[in-house]
Design a protein around this nucleic acid. Structure first.
Lengths: 156, 156
DNA sequence: ACTAAAATCACCCGAAAGTATGAGTTAAAT
DNA sequence: ATTTAACTCATACTTTCGGGTGATTTTAGT
């Protein structure tokens, strides 16, 4: 049935097709013409598009991120009253090793007699040590010596 | 003198200047020629530059800024060994106010005589106070008392 | 090897610290 | 009102501390 219709209107259809082709040709030629006439603008447009894209890419890729600084307070418990022997004070006062040793034992509450026993020396020796100690530290008694020694970080 | 030199070599100088101008003109013409011959490339380059800039501008203007959060820890030093009077120990040992007062002055290195003067009492009173103090604290001397009192946080 | 500082010890003496005992006063609790 | 604890003071006595002086021995630095 379709075939029959084709055969019946063959000239008309051919004419139609020919007309359509002609029109298409004309439109194509027109487009070509436009394209040729505006080739520069099109090229420029393409470049513009391309390089706009490039610019955006560059900007996104190469910019440094903004840095936002957040300060968090962290509690650090530090023993500020930790004992650290002050050798400078010892040198300044000119205290000898033995004198310092006696000072330490005095600060522990030992009597001269006990200190003598501890150090395997005579009571008199301990007395002379403590005497020189008091002289050098410019104090008048063992309690003052202990108090000052703690202040000067000579004993804990 | 400079003027004299100019007058003397006037033709030479003029000739030199003319030559220089001619060379400059030729170079300029050559440049013009190059520019005209490459007008399209130059134009394209200009567009490329312009739109790259536009792209960058767009990217920077229209995108949200990147934010990088940096956490900086700030150390806060806290004193852990602060003196806190130990009232419990005082109660446990049964130390009276006056005895504690005497203890404090002893720890400062004062003699019994000085303590007596400070408290407006007699030397004997100070002695009895310190004696009872030593009994209660179970020590035998002022230095021991000071040492123990510090351990028990009765004095700083 | 010589010297200076440190460590050791002894003796004496006065001052301070600490013990023992007793007692008077005051303030707070029952 | 009475009791109790804290504060006060005194006297007598013992022990320890601290100053003064001098001497001997180690140790360390030049």
């Amino acid at each position: 049935m379709t075939w029959a219709i084709f055969h019946k209107h063959r000239p008309t259809i051919l004419y139609g097709i020919s007309l359509a082709l002609l029109l298409f040709l004309l439109k194509w030629l027109e487009l070509r013409f436009i394209v040729i006439n505006h080739i520069f603008e099109i090229y420029a447009g393409a470049i513009a598009l391309l390089f706009t894209g490039l610019g955006i890419w560059l900007a996104l890729k190469l910019t440094k991120p903004k840095v936002e600084t957040v300060i968090v307070e962290k509690e650090v418990f530090i023993d500020t009253k930790e004992f650290r022997f002050n050798a400078q004070e010892q040198a300044r006062l000119g205290l000898s090793k033995r004198e310092l040793e006696v000072l330490g034992l005095i600060s522990e509450g030992l009597s001269n007699q006990e200190i003598a026993a501890q150090l395997f020396v005579s009571l008199n020796t301990v007395k002379t040590h403590s005497s020189r100690l008091f002289e050098k530290m410019e104090v008048k008694s063992r309690t003052q010596a202990v108090e000052k020694a703690k202040r000067l970080s000579l004993i804990p």
